[in-house]
Amino acid sequence: MNEPLLRINDLRQGFGKGKKRFYAVDGVSLSVNAGEIFGLVGESGCGKTTLGRSVIGLYKPEGEIFFDGKRLTGKRDSGDIQMIFQDPTSSLDPRMTVGESVGEGLAIKKTLTKKELRKRVTEALTLVGLRPEHASRYPHEFSGGQRQRIGIARAILTSPRMIIADEPVSALDVSVQAQIVDLLDSLRQRLGLTVIFIAHDLAVVRYFCDRIAVMYRGKIVETAPSRELFALPLHPYTRALLSAVPIPDPRAERERRHFIYTPTDSEGQAKMQKISPTREVLCTDAEAKKYIKVVQNHTKTAQ
């Protein structure tokens, strides 16, 4: 079997000192295959952003991160992994032109001539659906959706192999959200990108991602292919989270029941267990047996 593009092994990232130290990411292992769109979902404070930032090298976490078979340590200067941030307004310097912001990643390396750099910036802007002349304008002249396109152009400039998109659409209007998701998808296909899509909005994740990991309190509680996760959520937290997503349908909303997740005492003994070839759940041995049965029954009835 092929080595996954990104493999994370027992990653821990703590904040604070002494007794107050707590782990925002608390023993996360996962792998992301090349060309995949991998969704990382969970509520605020679950550690999804910290995990993304650890991969990009903004923190010095405990544990191992392998990218393309090589262990990542210290600074990431190859530009192989890039990040797109949530708020396109605060992630762009208001006093830099769009061209300067987009080109910065390559300009600091001083390997390209000005002309070559300009060509790369133009290419990147065109790829994200902006026009070359936009390079000389300033961020405030653009709408939220366009600013996010600028952020994406900046991320793809270094020809990365992986993009970590941290809530890239949650600050945007719904009609524009779909535009940006469509753009990320077309870039993935054209440039052969692998995408880690961090989001709290499960509806977006559902149709966009191939595989999803659900995070809760610094741990991944369940990973599964997108379809399987929504068809049959196993971990009680996943079930609670799915039941809380509002559906744009008044009749369905009226009939709906919301589950509330309360952590159980057995949480301490839980470990990541394989339930099917494609699914893993954080659970005890007894629970794993139960889940395996549930999945088998479900596949039988589905056939």
């Binding site: 009609s175 469509d182 509806a203 977006v204 799915l242 509002p246």
Partner: peptide, 16 residues
């Protein structure tokens, strides 16, 4: 309405 992803289905929403 068509641009909103449906949490109850797999179909892609349509951007405006």
């Amino acid at each position: 309405l068509a641009s909103v992803p449906d949490p109850d289905g797999d179909e892609r929403p349509r951007a405006i």
